[in-house]
Design a binder for these strands. Structure first.
Lengths: 298, 298
DNA sequence: ATAAAAAGTTGCATATAGGTTAAAAATAAT
DNA sequence: ATTATTTTTAACCTATATGCAACTTTTTAT
């Protein structure tokens, strides 16, 4: 219980006295006791105190989690290991979570197995997928946890089932409209995967609808260049496959051009190219990844 | 005190029973009373409960703030009014905060006056600026609150004083390295303004140092295209003014090209162009804002 | 429709969060 | 060094957070 200590750190580094910090909220002796870990505090009082010393709850939480070894939410940890392709670390997490019991521990376990499978080092059974599906069907509010879980499940689920779940998600998604950047990234990631999955299965119209739907987002977030570029990419491929080849290729090139100009890691463009090999002809491919006209800017 | 209600919403929409949610943390009856607003809860218990139902504190806070009319942190509200150029609304806030007393209310007041001044509808006295400076000098931990305050103060402060304060900030900034996107935006905004201010005062070397410092960030955040483009812009102008005109103009053009391709509001590029009029010749300007070579992609 | 089971609520007991006062210890100011 | 201010600690007290058992309501099963 070092919550108090974190508060003390903020207060002292801002040179605010106990008296200034607590006026009208709690008493001086109590605040002192709280800061020194001798007593707990109510949530609403903590909110008021943080407001008084001009610290956002997110800032407070950040430092608190950082100083706490018993990490409360393990999602970022999973994510990191997964993105690094660190299968060994994921297996560690897996054996930890397999010891625990309960519905949610089980879901975490399945999530880890899916991650490992994607990395080529694991398997997911039919039963486990059934558990996932029934969980998603039951839920009618998606938070970061479910978004993340679903994002990894997309390619494991049968297309019609996956699409149905996705429709459920869309109904709720409004909450995230002006939500934190972190959460929108996950949401976009899901859209991205669903659309690619649809295209791979020749469901062009559905994919197109989703692309159009995504476009609305950028009315309010015109500074989100990265996702804008990804959207050009998705739209480009979709139009290309819907026989609007010229327009499609232009969009694909635009996406690549932006990516190229912003110095995104070269691996990224290499992966993009790899993926498009499935769809584009050799000439088209080399045109879409030809940046000679702006090369002088590099 | 509708904290409990928000928790109840999350729990119920995820179809988790009281028993499942509280096992090993609090008792069923207590959780029920908390949810119905009959009692407060300790912060640590709330954290555990949120973790149990797989809701992030930030998600919880978001919904809580949204449903709470008595907004706890007014920074976003200020920001919105300021960005919209809504002077009337800012004046409203000002008269509200002038009624309150205390050091922080005073700081908020000054901040509002600076905003209004920037919009051409207010004045800030020397005394008020002195208060600001002494506040920043005393502080040795910068949170969102101070970042925001400083961001608006930059052009009001004497250059050497401002630079000293900025150096203090830089020492602390490490905390924000892998911090939330929101906070980094503010930090970048500050860097941006400081660099432009330096350039306007012919302090090229200092500006260049800051530009180099900013570049380090993008090693870990290569998906942040928007800020990457802004950095190209800053670096371009800096190099241009340091007599590396060719390289500088290339970077400026690169920044504009990215901005153009991502469909950022046309006002944005117009403002950029306006600003650069101070420095570039007419021919240079029209070249840097000439997008004919990629026009066919639009 | 009715019983059985589970989920949620209420009343009372108690542990603990938090206030008040005062005094000791530690910092800051002169 | 001496004063003044801030912080910590202590003792005692009150309000309230929380647990337990019994109760009511809702859901599920037959």
């Amino acid at each position: 219980m070092k919550i108090g200590k974190v508060f003390k750190y903020f207060r002292q580094t801002k040179h605010i006295t106990l008296k200034e910090a607590c006026q009208g909220i709690v008493s001086v002796p109590f605040l002192s006791r709280f800061e020194n870990g001798l007593t707990d505090i109510s949530f609403s009082h903590l909110l008021e105190l943080l407001n008084r010393i001009n610290v956002q709850l997110s800032e407070f939480e950040f430092l608190y989690q950082q100083k706490n070894t018993t990490n409360n939410d393990l999602l970022p940890a999973f994510q990191q290991a997964y993105q690094e392709g660190n299968a060994a670390q994921l297996k560690k997490y897996l054996s930890e979570w397999q010891k625990k019991q309960g519905k949610f521990a089980n879901l975490q376990t399945i999530q880890l197995k899916m991650m490992l499978t994607t990395l080529g080092e694991g398997t997911v059974t039919e039963d486990e997928l059934a558990i996932l599906v029934s969980y998603f069907q039951k839920i009618d509010n998606w938070t970061f946890f479910e978004l993340y879980l679903f994002g990894h499940a997309i390619s494991f689920l049968e297309l019609p089932i996956m699409l149905n779940l996705f429709k459920e998600l869309q109904k709720k998604e409004i909450i995230y409209d002006d939500f934190r950047h972190d959460n929108f990234s996950i949401l976009f990631y899901i859209y991205n995967n669903v659309i690619l999955h649809l295209l791979a299965n020749n469901c062009f119209d559905e994919a197109h609808t989703l692309v159009n739907h995504l476009e609305n987002y950028f009315g309010n977030h015109d500074k989100d260049y990265y996702h804008q570029a990804r959207l050009f990419n998705l739209k480009g491929l979709t139009l290309y496959l819907m026989d609007q080849k010229v327009l499609g290729l232009r969009l694909l090139k635009k996406a690549n051009l932006i990516t190229y100009l912003t110095n995104h890691k070269t691996d990224f463009l290499k992966n993009e190219k790899n993926y498009l090999t499935k769809y584009l002809s050799t000439e088209e491919l080399s045109e879409v990844f030809n940046f000679s006209e702006v090369d002088y800017l590099k």
